[in-house]
Amino acid sequence: MNEKDLFDLFVTEAEKPFSGWDFSYVSDTGRMASEPMHWNYTSEILASIRKADSLLDMGTGGGEYLSKLQPFPRSTFATEAYEPNVPIARNRLEPLGVKVVEVNDDNHLPFDNDQFDLIINRHESYSVSELYRILKPGHQFITQQVGGKDHIDLNAALDANEDNGYSYWNLNYAVQELERAGFNITKKMEQFPYTRFYDIGALIYYLKAIPWQISDFTVPNYFDKLVQIHQHIQDKGFIEFKEHRFFIIARK
């Protein structure tokens, strides 16, 4: 198969549907892989979930991840802001006893003061003041965040706008914000692991699933640069870009 036909094949493969927050089409097949981090989010939260009587999972996506953490505390809620994900999450989680709540404003969450023993948050935005309001005194907020420098080298490779408006968002900023609100930070870590893509179709699939990375991304808009990246992958076997992740445990 010549290079043009191979490129076209991968572009066609990238048309596979994406739902919830499930990258298994490219990750489980090894077409996209990330460097292991110095911590594991699940290992960090699991013991706290088992001890909690009430739990909130912020930004549950389609509920794929949370569903794997059973058994849940007696009172378990999940929020989701992306409208297409809400029915997916409800169908998956509510039969398991989890109440899924659609939210549109981080500053006004539909929960009582001091409602939760534990709040977990994986790659979701949050309001520090609302976290403090709804978390019980003496209990924990645990989060893994995507930092503001996430994949800026990917944007550069495509000659896309690198200013996502969140360049300030890093471990130090988040820690200071939480401390000002009255939280005590008990654990914090930050890392810039790589993500590798082993074919151009996996990269296109990924970019279509995260439209906030390059807001005007389409294959025609970035065709020439995508062809160059495709050729690089064919020559080198893969291409890699740097993620930005940080982790915090904060106690009220």
Score class of each variant (00 low, 15 high):
P17A: 11
K136S: 06
F183R: 12
L131Q: 00
G201P: 04
M37A: 04
N104Y: 11
A250Q: 02
N221L: 04
N172V: 11
T42H: 10
I134D: 03
L9D: 10
D5A: 14
R92N: 05
D57S: 10
T218V: 05
I229E: 00
D112C: 08
G97K: 05
L69T: 06
I142A: 08
Q115F: 05
H139V: 09
G62W: 01
Y222G: 01
H151V: 15
S215P: 13
N170T: 04
P71F: 02
G138L: 13
S215G: 13
P211M: 09
A33G: 09
I142M: 13
F77D: 09
G20A: 07
A160C: 02
F223C: 07
R180E: 13
I45P: 04
R50Q: 15
V128Y: 03
N91F: 10
T12H: 14
P110T: 02
E35T: 14
W212C: 08
D28N: 15
E83P: 05
S48Y: 15
S27Y: 13
D112T: 07
L109M: 05
E64M: 10
Y82G: 03
Y222L: 01
F197M: 08
K4S: 09
R122D: 01
Y126G: 02
T195Q: 14
E240G: 06
E80G: 00
F7V: 01
D159E: 07
I88Q: 03
H151P: 00
H108S: 10
L203Y: 03
A52R: 06
Y65S: 08
K187W: 11
V146A: 13
F183V: 08
I185V: 14
L118Q: 01
F197C: 05
H230I: 00
L226Y: 01
E80Q: 11
H232L: 11
E102G: 10
Q176N: 13
Q191C: 11
E162F: 02
E177P: 02
K188F: 00
R74N: 13
R133T: 03
K242W: 06
A14R: 07
D114K: 08
F183G: 02
G237E: 04
E35P: 07
G201M: 05
F247H: 14
K51T: 15
V101A: 04
S34I: 04
D153N: 06
F223G: 00
I49D: 01
F18L: 03
F192Q: 12
K236A: 13
M189Y: 14
D106M: 08
I210M: 13
G138N: 12
Q140V: 10
W169P: 00
Q231T: 09
P87N: 07
P87H: 07
K236T: 13
Y205N: 06
R31A: 11
N155T: 08
V86N: 04
I120C: 00
T29V: 07
A89Y: 03
E162G: 01
E124M: 04
Y166D: 12
H108F: 10
I200H: 08
G148F: 06
N91W: 08
I229D: 01
V227N: 04
V175T: 09
F183C: 07
L135I: 11
E3Y: 11
V128R: 05
Q191K: 12
S129R: 12
L6T: 10
A33V: 15
I152K: 01
V101N: 05
M37P: 02
R90V: 03
T76D: 01
W169Q: 00
H230Y: 06
